[in-house]
Amino acid sequence: MNLWPFVFALFALGIFCLLTRRNLIKILIGLELLSKGATLALIWSGILRNSLSYTQSLAVIAIAIEVMVVAVFLALVYAFHEKSSSLDTDDMRRLKG
């Protein structure tokens, strides 16, 4: 049994989503997929080291942090929408050069 492929697949999907999707909600989904991959990796590493309780407790904290990050991100998205009435990353190009 080996779950690493799934971890890497989740990471690949997350990065793919971040690279190509141009909607901020989709960007959020990409970041979420990365976090879920990382959480899965935590649990799986606990199984490998035969200390599942330990990594579970880490995973719990990681999930809590993840939510906080998502909340801040959504607040930022909201603030951006207030200014631009848009969720499109193509509109986020004022700062460059």
Partner: peptide, 17 residues
């Protein structure tokens, strides 16, 4: 070289890859 700073989020992320 400043053109590298595209200002596009996706390019930034591509640089990470």
């Amino acid at each position: 070289s400043r053109k590298m700073q595209t200002g596009d989020l996706h390019w930034n992320l591509l640089y990470i890859v």
